[in-house]
């Protein structure tokens, strides 16, 4: 009887996600232009990827992206959340403002940064340049494009982590904090020995999610640079998207999608391992 209650959710989910995902995995071993009949080619798509400079660049960029997002926003979020705990007054207000960028559409955030900050004509960069300190547009330089995009995503993202860490910090037992305070712990000691260990499960989960999300990043890259200039900011998801819809190399796109998923799968496996270990202890 109750089994029927699951049918709508599962039906939609299987039709939209599971079946197409299974097809994608099959397509990764085929050559297909999206219209004709797929031709089985074995591992040719993957072999082609291994020889493709752009694929390696995209993968490298995903790794750099992961490294940035594992450190900078998590550190910012933790620090700000702890400071909100110290400040107490006004923490509700700070929390709302820090969270605000999360509710703005990525397309809009991207355009505001592009036009109002990075642009050499209409942006802050242009203003500084005209004042005599030349600032190149980071999005148009091969050496900085990826970091230019990362800054925009950071601005949009860190407040979310801050709010999550703040919520977790408030669950740290009052007695532990009191005890440390009576012992005369400094701010850093409090952070290092009481607060951080107290919210370790939350930090671990957020780091795992960060790794998974870093391999999915799409919107900001696609809108700001489309992976350019000269593929310098290409990531796996934009590579897959362009291969499928611009080059009609759906087999190659599917192979890239499978690679992305493998990273997610590996990360999830590590997380389950960690959880199991924690459970044993």
């Amino acid at each position: 009887m109750h089994r029927l209650y699951l049918i709508p959710t599962l039906l939609i989910n299987v039709a939209i996600i599971f079946i197409p995902a299974a097809l994608t995995i099959a397509l990764a071993f085929c050559r297909w232009d999206g219209m004709g009949i797929p031709v089985f080619v074995g591992l040719a798509n993957f072999r082609q990827l291994l020889a493709d400079r752009v694929f390696w660049m995209a993968l490298g960029n995903n790794v750099i992206w992961t490294a940035i997002f594992l450190t900078v926003p998590i550190a910012m979020g933790l620090l700000a959340a702890t400071m909100m705990l110290v400040a107490r007054r006004g923490s509700a207000f700070f929390q709302v403002i820090y969270f605000l960028p999360m509710v703005i559409a990525t397309a809009i955030t991207a355009r505001v940064w592009q036009g109002m900050i990075y642009s050499p004509l209409t942006g802050i960069a242009g203003l500084i340049t005209r004042a005599g300190f030349p600032v190149p547009n980071p999005l148009t330089q091969t050496s900085t494009a990826l970091y230019g995009i990362a800054v925009v995503d950071l601005w949009h993202w860190w407040g979310f982590l801050c709010v999550i860490f703040f919520a977790a910090l408030r669950q740290v037992p009052q007695e532990q904090i009191e005890a440390a305070r009576i012992e005369g712990a400094s701010f850093w000691q409090m952070l290092r020995y009481v607060l951080l260990p107290g919210i370790r499960p939350t930090i671990t989960l957020m780091m795992i999610m960060t790794i998974i999300w870093s391999f999915l990043v799409f919107d900001f890259v696609y809108i700001l640079t489309q992976g350019g200039p000269a593929f310098s900011s290409e990531v796996l998801s934009t590579l897959a998207y362009r291969s499928a819809f611009y080059d009609l190399a759906v087999g190659k796109a599917a192979a890239v999608a499978v690679v992305i998923s493998l990273f997610g799968l590996a990360t999830t496996a590590v997380y389950i391992r960690l959880q199991a270990k924690e459970f044993d202890q």
């Binding site: 999915l216 599917a254 890239v256 998923s261």
Partner: peptide, 21 residues
């Protein structure tokens, strides 16, 4: 577990067959 697993799947994993379908 199945529902949680689908949240970590990249959109590109199901986007292409879905579009052409």
């Amino acid at each position: 577990f199945y529902l949680l697993a689908t949240t970590t799947a990249p959109i590109q994993l199901f986007l292409f067959p879905l579009y052409f379908g």
